[in-house]
Every structure is written in C-alpha cells, then in structure tokens.
Design a protein around this nucleic acid. Structure first.
Lengths: 191, 191, 191, 191
DNA sequence: CATGAATGAGCGTTCATTCAT
DNA sequence: CATGAATGAACGCTCATTCAT
C-alpha cells in the first residue's frame, strides 16, 4: 500500500537534498532519478517538468513551515511569549528538516518560482505580519513598517542558518538563545 | 569620447544585474550580450571567459564597497558613531549600485571565485569583524559570535533592500533611519 | 537484433570515412552525426568526447591491421615470401576497409592520440621494422634506414590506393601483382 | 618600389610557414596577420578568404616546383640520366623551399582545394608521366600503369621528406643517393 | 589603402525532455 | 505505468569575415 506515491516521494526527497546541496541549476534530472532509484523518464510521470518539480517542492515545504508556526500558537499570551513560540518553531523546523529551510532560503528569490510559490512564501510572512501588527498595536513592537521588520528578522535568521549549514558556526543552545534575543531586541519597542 | 570602454562597461553593468537577479549559473553569455547590446563574441574581447568576468565584477564591487566603508572611518569616535558610519555607507552603496551588494552576498562563497576574489572579500569581512570585535571588547556590542552578528545585520538589511527594489516598500529617510536603529538594537549590548 | 550496437557502429563508420577524407580537425561532430543518421548528442552516449572517438577508431583499426599482418606469418620462409605475405595482407586490409589505412597514416602522429594509441601504433611498426631488419641482416633487403624503407613502401602504396579510390586507376589483380613487384624491387638488395 | 606587393608577399610567406607547421585548420587568420605584421583585415584586401589564400599558395608552389623540374631537362640523354635530373630537382626544391614541399605534401588531398589547385597538381604529374611513358616505350621502365608508377615514386619520396622534416631521419647525401636508387629500382624495367 | 574592434555562425558538449519498448 | 536510449536546443567559446575609422 502507499506504493503508488512512493516513487513520487522518493523523487521529492532526492530533489530536496540535491537542490539544497548543489542548487537548482547544478542539479540535473538524471541525478535526481539516480538518487531516487527511478528512471529519468519516470520523473515526468509525476511532474510536468523540472520547474514544476522545484515549485511543488518549494510550496510543500513553505506550507509545512507555515503550519508549524501556526500550530499551538499561544494566542492569548504575551507578545514576548508569542515571539518565543515563533522563533522556537523556526529553529525546530531547521532541526527536523535538515535541507528544507536551506533550500527555501537559497531559492526563495529564484527566477523560476511561479506565482503559487511566491504566494505561499507571502503566506508565511502573513503569520509574522499579523503577529507584528498586533505587537505594534500593543506598543510592544517597534514602529517600523511591518514588512521591514519581517525582512530583518527573517533575513537575519536565514542568513545565520546558512552559516550553520555551511559549518562555519556551531549550532549550540546558547547561540540559538542569543539569536532569539538579538532578533527580539531588534524588533521590540525600546522605551 | 570615452567610447573605448563603453562596451566593457555595458557588459559589466548587464552582467551585474543578471548575476544578481538570476545567479551566475542561470545567466548565459547570450543573455548578457543581448542586454549589453553587443555581440556574444565581443564579451570575449574584454574578458577571457565567463569566470574571469564574474571575478572581475566581484572584485571591483567588493573593493568599491571596502573603500567606501574605510574612507573617513571615525576611528576615535564612539562605537555607535562608527556603526552609524558603516550603516550609512552600506545604504549609500546600495543606493548607488542597487544590485552590487546583493550580488556580493549571493556569490561570496561560489565555487568559481578565484584567490583574488576571496582575498578581496576577506578584506571586506575584516573591517566588519574588527569593528564588532572592538565593540565587544568595549562591552558595547552583544556577546555573540561575530559571524552571527554580521549574518544578522547583512541578512536583514539585504532582505529589506530586496523589498525596496521590488517596490513593496518605499525608501524614505525615516525608514532607513529606523532600520539603522533596529540593526543597532540587534547588535548592541543590552545592559 | 544486434540493434544495440548498430548506432555505435554507424558512428564509427561515419567517423572513419570523414576523418580519412577531411582529417580530424576539419570533421565536425554534426557532420559525423548527420552521416551516421543519429542526433549529435547520441555520439556522446557512446564516446566521452571527440578525442576518445578518434582514439577508439585508431586503436581498433591499428589492431585489426596488426593482427592481420601477424596471423599466419610465414616465419621460416624466405624474405621474399614474407614480403609477399605482408603485402597481400596490406592489400586485403585496404580492400576490406577502404579508409582505414589512409586514416592511420594521416593521423599516426597527431597531437590528440593517447598513450594506448601510440602504443598500438608502435606494435604495428615493430612488425615491419623487425621484418626489414631481419631482411637486412640476411642481405636480402637494401641497406637504407628502416624508417626510410617503410616510408617509401607505405607512401607509395597509399598514394596508389588513393588513385584507385578516386577511380583514376582500376584495381585489377595484375596491377596489385605489379605493385608488389615494384615495391619489392624498391626495397630488396640488388647485388 | 615593389612596396605595393610587399604586404602580399609577407602574407604568403607567413601563411606558408604556418600552414606547413600547424596545418590549414589549426592556422587562424589573426596568426598569419601577426606573423606577417599586417592587420587581419589587410589579408582580405589581397585574398577573398582563407580558402583562396591557401589555394593561391598551393598553386604557386606547385608551379614553382613544376618549372624547376622542367628547366634544363636533359631531353636527349638516357632515361636513367633524366630520372637523375628529376630526382635531384625534387631534392633541390625541398632544400631551397624549406616549407613548400611539406606544405604541398600535407595539403594535396585536402577538402578545400579548388579545381585550379588540383589541375596544377596534375600538371606536376604530367612531367613525370611523359618521362615514364617515354621510358616505357624505350623498354627502360617497368610495364605498369604510368599513374601507378608516379604514385609510388612520388608518394614514397614525399613520405620520406616528411620524416626528414619531422626530424626522424637525417638528410645526408648517402640517404638521398640511396633513395634515388630505391626509386629507380622501383620503376625501371628489370630484365 | 590599412586596420582591428566587433560580429555571429558554428564549434564541441550538456541535459531537459520524449517515446518506443 | 516505467524505463533509458535518443534527441536537439542551447550552452560557453572561437575565429573567419566585415566595416567604421
């Protein structure tokens, strides 16, 4: 059972790893096929072409990430606690899905992303946007365009994640704690 | 007059934009040629090959940026004033060459960079590292790995810059002022 | 049946003809592909690149020729009979593969030949050299540098072969007989 | 004076040397221009294109060679003396025009030769043809198709010349004497 | 006339995509 | 359905040829 989509999943898994490790342009379809133990032609039974494959992958992991952030969101707790929730989930996502966030980070501005992918990425931002807007209303968050604040937190966090992935920085609890504080100090309202 | 290097400059300009927007691998020589309004072969009169072109470009903008940061650096002023200098120069650099910093950030670890490019990048890196290390020594900057601090500032700032370029955010003096404060609050030591 | 290597053989056949007629440098991959009725990319399924193709071809025909000369060599017969054996086999080789010997002769000193090709050619050379040296030792062959004798026989024979191929001379048994005698009179010791 | 064709001569000289040393395909127009101390465009003032240049060159030297063989031909001497004359002139031509015969030898079957070049080459053979026909009539020359005899002498001689040029054989008087005897023994009538 | 910067066709090669099996 | 051999468009790059100076 479930054999019908097994190949599809293998293809997606292999594609994720290879896109993260080598990038979209340097990853060939035969490479993915070999890693997924399928024929090159088989990939085209599940995905119209290479761009559809990468967009499918991108949207899937952006949605997984989005849902992870949303789930168990401490609606009625303090802004600081909500920030902690979001930040910890971001960290958890990078821990659980070794390649996913790196793939998202390195491909989120790519020329081949379609509207659905860009929209999914925007949805991800919406969570942060709503949170920050609420925080600004409560005077807990700095009065700067919300988009700008997201860019700073997200851009900073992803850049850091990239360094950890590249092995240039060690992922310790202390570091993650420090980064959370850093990002919080960046966006919080300073009296 | 000055027509002798006009084509070379057009090529470099087109290459910068395309490398920044699509990346080195996804940018083809015919694309650059078309954008620069020259024949594909003409590019090879000025640059030995595609890798020499990208390295020339990389070194040029890294050096321009490095010199811009170094010039008039307020050596004996406060860490905050030094931060202000660096941040304003970074803003000025992105204003003057909207693609250059993004190009540098997305290509600084690329497989095709030669020794001169890596060296130039190290020089740039050194300015920021020395500044942050000095700041940490004076207890003015947060005690986090220097690499992490640079990642957060750059990652955040560039993500923002992308939004401005995309027209999603308007570049006002007030915004830039706010972003500088945000980044300062991120990295400064909070007593 | 046997369809699996049909394309490979077509490619080799076309390459042999074109390399012989135009030379390696003037023969393009598209030319070979067109002549072999395959796509240009197909050639690269069978041969890593153009140089591997030409080396494969070279080694193959040098070996075929070498073995043809060696087989049934009348070791203990007279020099004249040995000469007859070698000459008849050379004629047979050109009859069976009209371009092969000319291809070998025009490419045996080429810059793109690899070690295996040079070695194979040396083996071929050795047969003729040993025969002529033995003949000189027995005072049956003219006392001229062995290299010169080989050059004269091969140069003469191939020039003639070209005339036959061009249709300017008819290949009759009498002609071949006459040519063998001519070449023998060229190299034999005249008392 | 004579300045008007000086450039043309320089171009032809450089082309001869380069075609002989590297072959037609591996010689570029800029190479010839540089060696001849003219601009690349200048070559096109004197020769319509690269093929016209190589054909002009080919025809010129084939004619020079042809005339050298014809001049002072010992019409009423013995066949053997006439053969000696022709052979010595062949040798003299290779001595005087270091690159010319090698160029002719390596390019006489090339795909780019036009009708005039092939005709000139045929004219060269005509001298040998008339001589051999006369010799056959006098029963001094072997009874084999004249074309075949020319191929053997000429092919053999040129192949040998190539070895000398390549440095694999030393050009001594004894060798040249031996080669003449070899060729004579090849074509003469053996009673 | 002479030039050489500029061009673009065509090279060797790769790889996304197709389709006969 | 699954495959991988085959394809050909498009890559980076070279160089014969043109033409503004």
């Amino acid at each position: 059972m479930a054999a019908m989509t097994e190949k599809r999943d293998n293809i997606l898994d292999s594609a994720l790893t290879l896109f993260a490790e080598r990038g979209f342009d340097a990853t060939t379809i035969p490479m993915i096929a070999k890693d997924a133990n399928v024929g090159a032609g088989t990939i085209y039974r599940y995905f119209e072409n290479k761009e559809v494959l990468v967009n499918t992958l991108f949207q899937y992991y952006v949605q997984v990430f989005t849902e992870l952030l949303k789930k168990d969101f401490p609606e009625h707790h303090s802004i600081r606690e909500q920030f902690h929730h979001l930040f910890q989930r971001m960290i958890r996502f990078t821990d659980e899905q070794e390649h996913a966030l790196y793939f998202i980070k390195t491909h989120n501005a790519a020329y081949f992303l379609d509207d659905a992918s860009r929209e999914a990425f925007t949805d991800l931002w919406t969570i942060l946007r709503d949170f920050l807007d609420e925080g600004k209303a409560e005077n807990e968050i700095r009065d700067l365009p919300t988009l700008a604040l997201i860019a700073i937190i997200f851009g900073g966090f992803l850049e850091l994640h990239q360094l950890i992935r590249a092995g240039e920085l060690e992922r310790t609890e202390a570091l993650m704690q420090g980064v959370e504080n850093t990002c919080w100090d960046a966006v919080r309202h300073h009296p």
